[in-house]
Design a protein around this nucleic acid. Structure first.
Length: 410
DNA sequence: CGTCGACCTCC
DNA sequence: GAGGTCGAC
C-alpha cells in the first residue's frame, strides 16, 4: 500500500467522500471568513474555497457554511488510531461512517445540487461548536441594538455581518496575545504556529500539513523554553511566555485561568496584569475572547484611531501615547455607547478596518440584493421606522463627553 | 499621571 | 514601524 493511498486530505463539502454533519446557522448569525480571519484567533486557515481548518477542543476541524447551515467535519487524531481496529485506519479520509448511515443531504453549492453524505451526529460535537461560537447569543439582535445606538456602526454593519466573538480556550488565547505586542498579524500567526509545532501535541496530518494542539502551561513553563523560542524568532516575548506560564503554575495552579471565567471583569483583568508581558490590551483580549467578559474592550492604537476619527472621541485626544488612562477612557466610552456586549461590537469595527477586508466595501450591489430578498412587507415597515428613528439620534460625538457610570476601577 | 526609551525581528 | 509592556523620571 502506497503512502499516498493512506494520506488524509482536507475534507471538502462539494467533492464528496468525507462525511459531514451540519446545524442550522445563517450567515447573519455567523460569517466564518470574518469571524475566523479578523485576528481574534490565529489558529484557522482557509484550506479550500470557504473551507476553514483549525484546532479546537483538542480536535482538528474543517468548517464551511451554506446560506442557512454550518457544516463541520472532525478528523480522527493520530493517537485514536492505536485504539481502533485496522478497518478504520483509513478513516481520516473518506467514508468512515457511510456504511452505518446511508443518509445524504441535498445541498446547493453555486447553483449546483450536491449530494453530501451525512455522518451520524456524534455526541458533543455540535455542542462544542455552539460553545466555541457562542451560538446561543443572538447576534442579529445585538447588531440591531448597536445600530440603533450608533449610526456609524449601522453603516459599517451593512457589509460586515456575522462577526461574533469566539469563546476560546483561555490558555491559548492569553499566550497567543502575549505574542502580539509590537507585531503584525501575519508574523503572529507564524509565531503561534511555531509555538504549537515545537511544544504542542501532534493531532493529525492533512495534505502534508501537521496540526498540533496548543501547548499546555507546563510545556511552556519549562526552563528551556525561553532559549528555544528565542531561536524561533520570538524576541523578547520568549521570556514573557515562559515566565507567565511558570508564574501561573507556581502561584495559582493549572485551573486558574479557566476559573477567571467566574471572576468579575475588572478583577479578572487585574489578576492577568500581574503576569509578565500582560498589560491592559492583552488582558482585555483574554477577558473578551476567552473569559466571558463581553464588555471588555481591548484598546490598541488602531481602536484609538477609530475612536478619534469616526467618533470624535475626546478621550486621549491631547495625549501623545496610548496610556493606561486613555485606554480605560476609550473602553468606557464604547461601553457606554454599545452596552454590555461592547467588546463584541468593537470587533466588528476592528474587522471592518483591516486592510485585507477593504475589498468588501467596494461591492455595494451584494448588500442591495440581500435587502431585496429580505424585504417582506412586514420587515420593510419595521426597517423604515428604524431609519426614521435613526435620524433623530444624536451623533456619538456628544455622548462622548458624558461621564461613564461604571463602577470605579478597582 | 504623562512621556520616553528599550525590548526582538521582520518587512 | 508593527494590533504592547515595563521601568525610570
Amino acid at each position: 500500500m502506497s503512502i499516498i493511498a493512506t494520506m488524509a486530505k482536507h475534507a471538502r463539502l462539494s467533492v464528496g467522500g468525507a462525511a459531514w454533519a451540519s446545524m442550522a446557522c445563517t450567515r447573519s448569525q455567523l460569517r466564518l471568513d470574518l469571524t475566523l480571519g479578523c485576528g481574534q484567533t490565529f489558529r484557522w486557515r482557509e484550506t479550500g474555497d470557504g473551507h476553514w481548518t483549525g484546532v479546537m477542543g483538542g480536535r482538528v476541524w474543517t468548517l464551511t457554511q451554506t446560506d442557512d447551515r454550518l457544516w463541520y467535519h472532525v478528523y480522527n487524531n493520530k493517537d485514536a488510531h492505536k485504539e481502533v481496529d485496522n478497518r478504520k485506519r483509513k478513516a481520516d479520509g473518506p467514508a468512515q461512517q457511510l456504511n452505518k448511515s446511508e443518509k445524504r443531504w441535498k445541498v446547493n453549492i453555486k447553483e449546483e445540487e450536491i449530494d453530501v453524505p451525512v455522518t451520524v451526529k456524534k455526541e458533543g460535537e455540535e455542542e462544542m461548536l455552539v460553545d466555541y461560537f457562542q451560538l446561543d447569543v443572538n447576534l442579529e439582535e445585538l447588531y440591531r441594538e448597536w445600530g440603533l445606538a450608533d449610526p456609524h456602526f449601522k453603516h459599517i454593519s451593512n457589509i460586515f455581518t456575522g462577526i461574533r466573538m469566539l469563546r476560546q480556550n483561555p490558555t491559548e488565547c492569553l499566550f497567543s496575545f502575549i505574542c502580539t505586542s509590537n507585531n503584525h498579524i501575519s508574523r503572529i500567526q507564524g509565531m503561534v504556529d511555531n509555538l504549537c509545532r515545537s511544544l504542542g501535541k501532534p493531532l493529525c496530518e492533512l495534505d502534508g500539513t501537521t496540526y498540533y494542539d496548543f501547548p499546555s502551561l507546563s510545556a511552556i513553563a519549562d526552563d528551556k523554553v525561553e532559549a528555544l523560542l528565542r531561536d524561533l524568532g520570538f524576541g523578547y516575548r520568549a521570556r514573557f511566555l515562559q515566565q507567565s506560564a511558570k508564574q501561573i503554575l507556581e502561584q495559582h495552579g493549572p485551573d486558574w485561568l479557566q476559573g477567571l471565567r467566574r471572576t468579575p471583569y475588572l478583577q479578572a483583568r487585574n489578576s492577568l496584569r500581574s503576569l509578565p508581558g500582560v498589560g491592559l490590551k492583552v488582558a482585555d483580549c483574554a477577558c473578551l475572547m476567552s473569559l466571558d467578559k463581553a464588555d471588555a474592550v481591548p484598546v490598541d492604537t488602531h481602536i484609538w484611531q477609530i475612536a478619534k476619527r469616526d467618533y470624535k472621541c475626546a478621550a486621549g485626544s491631547t495625549q501623545k501615547t496610548l496610556t493606561d488612562k486613555v485606554n480605560r477612557d476609550i473602553g468606557d466610552f464604547f461601553r457606554q455607547l454599545w452596552g454590555p456586549y461592547a467588546g463584541w461590537a468593537q470587533s466588528v469595527l476592528f474587522c471592518a478596518d483591516l486592510k485585507k477586508f477593504q475589498k468588501l466595501k467596494e461591492m455595494p450591489s451584494i448588500k442591495l440584493e440581500d435587502d431585496k430578498k429580505a424585504s417582506l412587507p412586514l420587515k420593510k415597515a419595521k426597517l423604515k421606522i428604524k431609519n426614521e428613528k435613526l435620524d433623530q439620534i444624536e451623533k456619538p460625538t456628544s455622548v462622548c463627553h458624558k461621564k461613564a457610570k461604571l463602577a470605579p476601577q478597582d
